[in-house]
Design a protein around this nucleic acid. Structure first.
Length: 271
DNA sequence: CTTTGCACCTGTTGGC
DNA sequence: TGCCAACAGGTGCAAA
């Protein structure tokens, strides 16, 4: 469900309402997430203050006391901030009760999400250590992408969805950015010219920034922490638009599987 | 080293 | 209407 813009939307929704609050009670109803919720999770979190909330790729990083709470939403994960304690429903796996009476709840039907605690600098955590540059940061540049893509025969769409190459680009925004850059998803990464790398870096940034400004993309079940949908769906050029006319040239948008994921492109605008 | 295929889960959808 | 296969916004790992 959530790619970088959705996670950033969650982060921005959470920040003003949780930073400075204390965690007064932790309830874990289901420990079997992507990695098991550790046995000492409750004890280590209870009584701690949330000092900051950051994001790295699709991970949320909450500074709690001397530790960092790592949260990933996987495909179906959702964080909600409830104004008061509400009886849990199916798939409401973890609750953090905060000192102002609000409740931060993780809901995740598929359990591909993750909640872990780490000591020390989170950047050194195995899950984060090998992640590529932030797409909205200065390290993600034309020259980086050009150099990094040399020798890689994989389709450019798979390449930019690889978190080791660049953090946070998922299936929706990979398709969208490639449309904006005018590059076919199946184009081999090693065949990208410098100019194409430049356009692609620009397109990824522009797409993600615009999606963040819209509060993310709600296809089915993404909602912000207060339950609000994201409005980027109306801005999509290709994702989910198979059979519909291209918004630029009227050519019919094509759907094709690239590396086991559905991909959408305009055969006329993308070469 | 790179690349591919799949496993991990549940819920929804579309074809027959 | 019902059933079942295919698919869904992610990630990491085994195997080639």
């Amino acid at each position: 469900m959530p790619e970088l813009p959705e996670v950033e939307t969650v982060r921005r929704g959470l920040a003003p309402r949780v930073v400075g609050r204390c965690i007064v009670c932790v309830t874990v109803r289901e420990r079997r997430l992507r990695q098991p919720v550790p046995a000492d999770f409750e004890a280590r979190l209870t009584g701690q203050r949330i000092d900051a909330i950051a994001r790295r790729g699709k991970y949320l990083l909450l500074s709690v006391g001397t530790e960092t709470l790592l949260i990933h939403l996987g495909m179906s994960g959702r964080l909600r901030l409830l104004p008061e304690a509400v009886a849990p429903g199916r798939h409401d796996h973890v609750d953090l009760a905060l000192s102002d009476g609000t409740l931060l709840r993780l809901h995740d039907p598929r359990r591909f999400g993750l909640m872990l605690l780490c000591h020390g600098p989170p950047a050194a955590h195995p899950l984060l250590a090998d992640i590529g540059p932030e797409p909205l940061g200065t390290d993600f540049s034309d020259s980086y992408l050009y150099a990094r893509s040399r020798g890689h025969r994989v389709a450019v769409k798979n390449f930019i969805m690889d978190s080791h190459v660049v953090a946070g680009v998922g299936n929706i925004y990979a398709s969208e950015a490639l449309f904006i850059a005018g590059i076919r998803p199946t184009h081999q990464a090693r065949r990208l010219s410098r100019a194409q790398c430049g356009r692609l870096v620009w397109a990824i940034r522009a797409t993600l920034e615009k999606a963040i400004a819209c509060g993310g993309t709600t296809l089915r079940d993404f909602f912000g922490v207060a339950g609000q949908p994201g409005y980027f769906k109306q801005e999509l050029f290709v994702y989910g638009r198979a059979g519909a006319p291209c918004r630029c040239c009227e050519t019919v948008i094509v759907e094709r599987r690239v590396g086991q994921r559905s991909s959408f492109y305009c055969p006329h605008c993308q070469r």
